[in-house]
Every structure is written in structure tokens, then in C-alpha cells.
Design a binder for these strands. Structure first.
Lengths: 344, 344
DNA sequence: CAGAAATATTTACGCGCGTAAAATTACGAT
DNA sequence: ATCGTAATTTTACGCGCGTAAATATTTCTG
């Protein structure tokens, strides 16, 4: 395809396509904004010459670029990687360019990411914040400048919308299940959790237990960072070894902790499972990609992150379309589903 | 900080800092290229007015941007996510901006990513290709235009350099270990593997077995895509159930397959492990983040991806620095380390 | 302190495209 | 065929900064 000479800019491309440059410019900003016959002539020329407008020159004078920022708190976590993959596809399908940024569990890095985004003048941003650890002031300032939809972890009052999981419902689901089928669970978590939703889940557990007339019991273990499996393994192993738990049933704040605890229980020869004769029952939360390959397989609650991704993206697209900030901050929590497997 | 009026462009910023605009421009391109006293005056003004140059205007006329592309074949795999995290940090530390792109296991997507990168005029690109599935022609054309270092998976002759793992050495290591401590292993893999290094590992297994005077035995199971654990679980379970394996020892082409096989073996009540009285031994390759939490923990070979990341990044930086393409294509394979755990 | 070398300033132009206003053309419906 | 409207073309300017060349200034060297 293409004849010999290279097209250097839109001027030259407009010449070979027989259309004026401003119309070609209109075409690239929105192909449907030009007449059909014009569009066809441009696309014919495009097939012959493979010209692409210079994105830097394009974005320099445009007030809004076609870029959408996607900020993920910790991309090495397969759970977040999976959400990122989903949302990326949605952004591409909507004709935008996703800019994927990883906060790597670090609040300073999160702020850096927002700074980078600001420089890029994105049409909008989808932000899964670190949560409690986040620099609220920095995010607030950012949201004031750029249409931003928060997801996964809420920061009260920030952004034009928030979509996440209904931790009250989902934790309630698994607490009910555990209570119905055996001893009421203790709640295993980090004393100072990195995980954004941890505090909500803790309170949801407490409420669910009280609702059923049981006394909540929190097992809060030390540990920093995002290596949850290691913390679950080390501290879970310790707890199990020490004994003295008021229950044989452990509900973990998330699947990654549960994977560690499960592994420790196996090492120690404890029989984990829902069947008769078990020594321990262990459950998690999130339906992590690896939770179906633990031994035994992990009973957990799935988050409806397809819905969260879809709704977050669509809300941002609408925000960008209408070019005005949302009058009221939209919020919706999606229900989880009980995933019954072998561990509880 | 900052007085009332906003700085709109470099002209205005140059005015308030008392330096000419071209000098300020020089400063932003390389702070060390201006005299110390000048640098201090600019930085003082910077502290007062928080101005940042418009990156679109900057990059428009620059032949080389400060962007470095980082293309990952499948970001939802924690192994790749971890490498990406490493390399991202190195890129940032070197003063460049990482552009993280995910091919999502799809060759067409990989080509799209390279197209996007081309539009961004990156100073260089670090590319972990899909391997056999990759569109060789497209990558070749890209490498001709942009300094590119391949890593993880080699495509013979493409890019200015390649750094990866020495599969011959690492597979040899684990085959030797398995042979020394029990029955020679069969090799479990996908018949049509998605994984870039799969074919190299297959041949490495064959050579290692022949070297020790054993007949290689390939178990090639059906399955598409990147859900390796599911394939390992389904097909591994089938193989184990059918019986008739010439060995009780299974070496899997990668840890994710092994995780699935291990899970299947557990479900079927087979005793897996290196101890006496085991029914099965299972080993993997990669030292995947989850391999230390399987039941039993997975014996495997670690890739030295810190070295791979470091060397790949450094080579690209040098390439960018000298502004000339490498005269000879550099290649280095890093040795793996045996990780002895419970499964074999 | 003079002269050389390094650095800064001035001046000027160009990059590739967005976009506005006015003039022209093409289109669809009467 | 006629009209009104929508689409296109023409013309023109500006965005914010890179960069080159000539000139002026500072800093370093002996």
C-alpha cells in the first residue's frame, strides 16, 4: 500500500485525499461529523498512504484529549490486574486511549501518578485509590480539575462518582453461611491493613455477627505492605499453633490472606474443609483468581467487578460526553455472590 | 506558595524567574546543562509558582521524547506484573516516563500497542513479546524505527538486544534434581502453548533427559489461552486419573500449570511430595509468586528477573544515550536457581 | 588583568494542528 | 427548478515550545 513519498503532515494528507485540511482535522476528531462521501474519500486515502496525525500537535490545542487515566493501587495483585484488563478494554472500545498507572501501594506514588496525569490533560480518570493511605488533599485537588470516577475504594465526597462492592451485603452473606453450617467465624485481618476496603469489611463483620446474636472476635495480626499471602501464612500459622481460638472457623478479610492461612494450615497438617471431621474452616473474600486452586479450594464471596468496571467506565464516558460535572455524586454498591468451595 | 496569577507558559515563567525563555527551555530538557547559579534561580521561581511545561508542546518538536514504552504480554499474570513493576521503577529512576502497555495475550493487540507507541515517539521500548504468536513482520518494522530491547522471550534477530532466562540451564537443574532424588520426570505442557518460552523448555527437557540417558516423555495436553491453572487442573486431573504414566514425577512447563495440576492431585487425594510414601512428585518453573503457597509448596526454578530487568533497562538507556543503534545484537541468558520446596 | 572558553540572551522561525469566521458549495425537500 | 440548510472550503491566526545563529555576558585560565 501507499505510493513512494511519505506524508509528513495533515496538509499533505489533505492534498492527496482531495479534501481541505480543516475538514480532515474534523474527521480525525470525529469521523461521524463529516458527510459520508467525504468520509469515504478520506478513508480511501488513508488506506493508500497510512498517515496518522501527530498526537502531540493534536493535543496541544485541544482542551480535551482522548486520553483516559486508569490508576490502580497495586497492579501486581491479580485481582487488580484483572479489573485493569477489563476497564482497559472498555476504554479502547469507547474510542479513548487508556493510560495505565500503577500506584504500587505507595501514597506518594499515587500522587505522582495524578501529577503525571494532569500533565497529560486527560478527558477523565478512573481512579482506584489506596484508600485510607491516600493523600486526601491531593486527590481532592485533582478531582476539582479533572472529571474523576472512583472505584473499588471509596473516599467519601471525592470524585464525581463511586462504584464498588457492597461489603455489608457480601460479608453478611458469608457470615450467614458460616453461622448456618457451623461455628460463627472469627475475623482474620491485618491490624493496620493496606487493603482499601479492610475497615469496611471489619465493621460489616461486626454488624453481621451482632445481627445473629454472636460476639464478634477480631484477630488483628501485625504486618506491613502488600505481601498478604506471606502475612497470612506467618501470622495465620502462629495463631493456629497457639490455639485458643474461640472458634474453628476463620473468615479472612480477603482471599490473599486466606491463601496464606490455608497454606499454613496445610503445612501444620490441620484438616481444613466443610466436611465432617474437619479441624478448621477457612473462608475469604474477593474470589481471587487463585482461590479456586488452593487446597482445599477456597470458599469466598465474589465481587461483581465486571459490573463495577462497566458502570464506572460508562459513568465517566457520560461525564465526558456532557462536558459538565455531575450535579450530585453518584454512588452504587454492587452485591457479591457466595462462592461455595471446599474450605468452609 | 505562589502568588495570585497563574503562569500560563514558559514565556511568563521565564519572566518571573528573570531568565530568558530559551535558557529555561534548556533547563527543563536537562537541568545540569545550565550554570549552577542559573539553575538555582529557576528552581527558586519553580518553588514559588509551580509551573510545568506543556508536554505536548515540548514533545512536538523534540525528535526524542523522554518516554519509554514497556510492553508486557499478559499483565494479569503475577509473574509479568512483578517484572513490570521492577522495570517501571528503573525507568522512573533513570528520569524517563514509563508507558505501560498490556498485550493481553493477543498478537493483534501487541501490534496495536506498538502502533500506539510509534505515535508517542518514545526514546526507546522494552518489549516482552508474545513469542511464536507475535507478528514478526510488524515487530521487525517497529524495531527498525525505534530502539528496542527484547526481554523474557526472544525473537531471533529482532531488536537491539535480548535478555532472558537460560532455559537449558534451568530446566537442566530441575531435571537433574528430580533424577537424582527419584524417578526421571515426564514433561507436562500445552500442545500449543501460549507461553513464550514453552518450546525452549520442551527442547531443554529433552536434551537434559538424553544427557542422563533417559527417554524423554512429553505429555502434551489440549487447551487455549492464558488460563494455565485451569488447563493444568483439568488436563492434569485427567492424566492422573487415567494412570498409565511412565513415571510418578511430573515436571510442568511453568508454575501456573503446576499450580493447577497440584490442585487436581489434592482433590483426588493423591499424596504429592518429596518425602517417603508419596504417590506423585510435581515440579514447576518460574518461582511464581504463588508457588510458595501451594499444597504442598512447589519445588521449582526461579528466574533471575531482577537481573533481566536491570540489564534490559540499562542496555536501553545506553542505547538512548549514545543515540546510535547497537552494532551487534547483544544477547545474554541468565541462570536460574533451584528452589527446593515440598512438592518434589 | 587580559584573553579564551563557557554560558546566557536576543531574535527569529518553525513544528503540526485546532479553530474561528466568512464565503462557497452540495444536499434534500418542497 | 427553487429554496433553506448543512457541510465544506478558504483564510487566517494562535498554541507552547524547540532550536538555530548571532551577540553579549560571565567565568575560568594563566
Amino acid at each position: 500500500m501507499g505510493d513512494g513519498r511519505k506524508i509528513r503532515n495533515m496538509e499533505e494528507f489533505a492534498a492527496v485525499s482531495g479534501i481541505s485540511r480543516p475538514t480532515v482535522s474534523k474527521y480525525f476528531n470525529d469521523p461521524s461529523s463529516v458527510r459520508k462521501s467525504t468520509r469515504e474519500r478520506i478513508e480511501a486515502a488513508l488506506a493508500r498512504h497510512d498517515y496518522r496525525p501527530n498526537i502531540y500537535a493534536m493535543n496541544q490545542n485541544r482542551r480535551l484529549t482522548k486520553n483516559i487515566g486508569l490508576v490502580i493501587p497495586y497492579l501486581a495483585d491479580p485481582f487488580f490486574a484483572e479489573i485493569a484488563r477489563n476497564i482497559e478494554s472498555l476504554i479502547l472500545a469507547a474510542g479513548f486511549t487508556p493510560i495505565l498507572l500503577n500506584s504500587q501501594g505507595n501514597p506518594a506514588h499515587e500522587v505522582d501518578n495524578l501529577d503525571s496525569l494532569r500533565a497529560i490533560k486527560p478527558a477523565g480518570v478512573l481512579l482506584a485509590p489506596l484508600g485510607r493511605a491516600s493523600d486526601r488533599g491531593a486527590i481532592e485537588a485533582f478531582c476539582a480539575d479533572v472529571p474523576t470516577v472512583l472505584f473499588d475504594s471509596n473516599i467519601e465526597g471525592l470524585g464525581d462518582a463511586f462504584f464498588g462492592s457492597n461489603n455489608d451485603q457480601s460479608i453478611g452473606l458469608i457470615v450467614d453461611h458460616l453461622c448456618d453450617t457451623g461455628a460463627p467465624p472469627v475475623f482474620f485481618e491485618m491490624a493496620t491493613p493496606s487493603n482499601p476496603n479492610a475497615l469496611k469489611r471489619r465493621r460489616a463483620y461486626q454488624r453481621a455477627m451482632e445481627r445473629r446474636g454472636h460476639a464478634p472476635c477480631l484477630i488483628q495480626v501485625p504486618g506491613d505492605g502488600w505481601d498478604f499471602e506471606a502475612i497470612g501464612f506467618r501470622e495465620g500459622g502462629r495463631i493456629i499453633a497457639e490455639g485458643g481460638l474461640p472458634s474453628d472457623t476463620i473468615l479472612c478479610s480477603n482471599d490473599r490472606l486466606a491463601i496464606g492461612v490455608l497454606s499454613a494450615a496445610y503445612e501444620m497438617g490441620r484438616r481444613v474443609g466443610s466436611g465432617t471431621g474437619h479441624a478448621l474452616r477457612i473462608a475469604g473474600h474477593d474470589d481471587h483468581p487463585f482461590s479456586r486452586y488452593t487446597c482445599p479450594t477456597l470458599t469466598t464471596v465474589s465481587q461483581d467487578y465486571a459490573a463495577i468496571a462497566e458502570r464506572s467506565a460508562q459513568t465517566l464516558f457520560d461525564l465526558i460526553e456532557t462536558e459538565e460535572r455531575a450535579p450530585v455524586r453518584q454512588t452504587k454498591l454492587f452485591d457479591g455472590k457466595l462462592i461455595l468451595r471446599g474450605s468452609a
